[in-house]
Computed example of a mutant assay.
Amino acid sequence: MAVLKTTVDNDTKERFHEIALSQGMTEAELLRSVVLMLVDQQEVSADAIVLRPDNTKSSRITVGIPGFLVDAVKTRASSKGMAVSRWVAALVQSNVTGQPVMTDKELLALQASGRELAAIGRNVNQIAKALNIAFEDTDRVKLKLLSELSQVIDDNRSVIRALVRTSQNAWDAD
């Protein structure tokens, strides 16, 4: 994998470190999340990265894993694009809370879906505005097109549900 490097002043480094800790992430994981969001042309803010409940302070737990499982753990963590410790923490979080833990790729897919829904919303707003301006020209709005719009929204919702189900199932025991 490629490596990105930069230099920053000490205050910036310390603030970045504190943000990473508050998110339960390493600096590398936080930086990777920020870079992936930027590459996907999304607005990056501290609020966009908050993924966990208020009590995010990490505690260290030492767990002994039999040697024959270590390679499998490393492989699964790598396949999710996560550090081993983050993958184990996500596995525990998913099993304890019963909620899916989204990977960076899954979060990016959900954010792309959100952009699509926003675009649909803008189109619906334009239709409503056109109808309000010239309500006598309602024949300009084709029912077939509205039906297609409804289908696109339903399809998007199905994709989101499938993504959440897949993410949840990824953390279940095989």
Rank of each mutant, 00 (worst) to 15 (best):
D172S: 06
A134C: 08
A20K: 04
D40T: 03
D71V: 09
D71S: 09
K144S: 08
Q111T: 15
L91C: 10
L117I: 15
S79A: 15
N123L: 13
K5Q: 14
R15P: 03
Q93D: 15
A128N: 10
N55F: 02
L21Y: 03
R60D: 02
V141W: 10
D154C: 01
I127W: 07
D154E: 11
N132Y: 08
A90E: 07
D139W: 10
T138Y: 14
Q93C: 14
E148W: 04
L143F: 10
Q99W: 11
E148I: 05
E14V: 12
T138V: 10
R157W: 05
L145W: 07
T97L: 14
N55D: 07
K105H: 13
K57Q: 07
A170G: 08
L146P: 05
F135D: 12
A173T: 09
V3C: 06
V73I: 14
L38D: 02
Q93V: 12
G121M: 11
E106I: 11
D139R: 11
G64A: 08
A109I: 14
F68I: 12
N123P: 04
L145R: 11
T6P: 04
N132I: 07
Q42N: 00
S22W: 04
D155F: 05
T103G: 06
Q93M: 13
A170I: 00
R115N: 15
T75H: 08
S78M: 12
L30H: 01
V50C: 00
K74G: 08
I19H: 07
P66T: 04
T166V: 01
R60F: 00
R161I: 06
A90H: 07
Q111V: 14
D54Q: 04
D11S: 14
A83W: 02
V159W: 00
I133F: 07
D154N: 05
K105L: 15
I49S: 01
V164T: 03
R161F: 03
V88F: 11
R52E: 05
L110S: 10
L21V: 09
R122P: 05
Q41V: 00
K144R: 09
A20C: 03
N55K: 05
R15F: 07
V164K: 01
R161E: 07
V34E: 02
T75E: 09
V3G: 07
Q111C: 13
A162G: 04
L31Q: 05
M37V: 00
Q168V: 00
V44T: 03
L36T: 01
Q151A: 12
A72S: 11
L38M: 10
V101Y: 00
S78I: 08
L131D: 04
L91E: 00
G121C: 11
V8G: 02
M1W: 08
T97R: 12
G121F: 13
G98R: 11
E14W: 09
S78N: 14
D104R: 15
V63S: 06
E43I: 03
A90K: 02
Q111D: 15
